[in-house]
């Protein structure tokens, strides 16, 4: 019961933080420069790891499935599997997990350090709302950059799959490209862009909440970082299931 209450209390705090950030979106002052800086850090900074993850995920997907397809004489359809898996699921989820590790931890560490060194109190004492100045730019940056990172990961995943098909199984590039094109629909693409928006929201709000609720000095900062990454990753995976179900219903994704 105690754990359930703690979970509900945390959920309430995160929701409240998200709501306050949402409200401050509609009034001045707005911190455009901070938001751009965060976008650069989240987007450009995370690009290499997200591209690498995407490329090798696509490559390994094809590597693991090509021979099975070949067994059923369906090797020409292998690109379809890579495209569908990547765009619907693996691209958004793996990108979110990578960003959660890189950005979620950084946000929790930065805000947590600011809390324990009284910089957040100083900011409030100087008349600045930390939610407006620190939380909102980070959440906006994540919400905007996550779909872009995911699209980049998807593209590199498809390239990875194509590279394996072409270099290891001597499949014609045009065959692979054709099966990719026939494998994905507009709904898939739309779903693959909608999901990361919510993942960005989850990572941003959990990491900011964990950072701002840090207590117990430097040990507390470490605890906040761990919690931010673990909790946001778990939430991304859990939320992915329900979001997939909702998108299936709304966009008719996944029906043959």
């Amino acid at each position: 019961m105690h754990s359930l209450l703690r979970f509900l209390s945390e959920l309430q705090d995160v929701s409240l933080l998200l709501w306050q950030a949402f409200l401050s979106l509609w009034s001045k002052p707005r911190y455009y420069a901070d938001t751009i800086r965060q976008m650069d850090y989240v987007g450009v900074g995370s690009l290499p790891i997200v591209l690498l993850t995407g490329f090798f995920t696509g490559a390994v997907l094809l590597l693991q499935t090509f021979e099975t397809f070949q067994y059923y004489s369906m090797q020409n359809e292998s690109g379809r599997l890579v495209a569908t898996s990547l765009i619907r699921e693996l691209g958004p989820v793996l990108s979110a997990l990578m960003v959660s590790g890189r950005i979620g931890s950084a946000i929790a560490a930065e805000l947590g350090s600011m809390v324990v060194s009284q910089q957040i109190d100083a900011m409030r004492a100087l008349g600045t709302d930390p939610i407006r100045k620190l939380v909102l730019p980070r959440i906006v940056a994540l919400v905007v950059m996550m779909p872009l990172l995911t699209v980049a990961a998807d593209i590199f995943g498809l390239i990875g799959g194509g590279a394996v098909a072409s270099l290891m199984y001597n499949q014609e590039t045009s065959v692979y490209t054709y099966s990719v094109r026939t494998g994905i629909s507009t709904s898939d693409l739309l779903g693959g862009i909608i999901k990361p928006i919510f993942f960005g929201l989850i990572i941003g709000s959990v990491a900011c909440h964990k950072g701002l609720s840090t207590s117990g000095g430097t040990v507390g900062v470490g605890r906040s970082v761990t919690n931010a990454v673990v909790i946001s990753s778990i939430w991304v995976i859990i939320f992915d299931f329900f979001l997939s179900k909702l998108l299936q219903y709304l966009l008719d994704i996944g029906r043959l």
Binding site: S113, S117, Q118, Q119, D121, A122, M123, A125
Partner: peptide
């Protein structure tokens, strides 16, 4: 109000 914090609390 101006506030002077224990360790300065400067923005790093």
């Amino acid at each position: 109000i101006g506030m002077v914090f224990q360790e300065g609390a400067l923005f790093d």
